[in-house]
Design a protein around this nucleic acid. Structure first.
Lengths: 90, 90
DNA sequence: CAGGATCCAACGTGATACTG
DNA sequence: CAGTATCACGTTGGATCCTG
């Protein structure tokens, strides 16, 4: 729960599924999330090994976040959870 | 996540596995949980259909909480989560 | 562009005391 | 026994402004 719980981590992993995404793009995709929130979650997820942060360029700075192998296993668990939620209509 | 997330729900379901448990007994089994917390979680879980509350006697009042069929499916999902957590040593 | 710093409101939580 | 009520507190999150 510490690793995959909370309101945003699942959505973040989901949006990183198909390749690296830049910070602001991710921010847009996640609609209701403030930038501060997103920074907090991403930092946390990087330390937990769920995502990998990569600086693409400086001036102007560009950063991408990419899901790791471990992150994909977490996403798998979340898929199980989703199937269960759908099955019981929650 | 709304249904099985958080710090306590998993433990509560776990302790109800083998039959109904009274409030205070559950409180003792869950060590660090305050009574207030426990009431909140149990009320919430009753409304979500995870547990069933039953008044056994009044004066002195006795109440038990029992896991429902739906609660057992939730426990199943949590088992998956646990296996994953163990596999990756979190 | 990708954050960091700051301020403030809302919420969750624990401790304690009380009740039918 | 199984809660309810109240308060004090720390944490969390959003909003806003700032920066290399």
């Amino acid at each position: 729960m510490r690793v995959i719980g909370g309101k945003w981590k699942g959505s973040i992993l989901w949006h990183l599924q198909d390749g690296p995404v830049r910070f602001n793009e991710l921010s847009r995709q996640l609609g209701g999330a403030s930038k501060k929130m997103l920074v907090q979650r991403l930092t946390e997820m990087e330390q937990q090994g769920l995502v990998k942060r990569e600086v693409i360029s400086e001036r102007p700075i560009a950063v991408t976040y990419e899901i790791t192998g471990f992150g994909r296993t977490a996403l798998g668990v979340l898929e199980q959870l989703k199937d269960w939620a759908i099955e019981y209509d929650i």
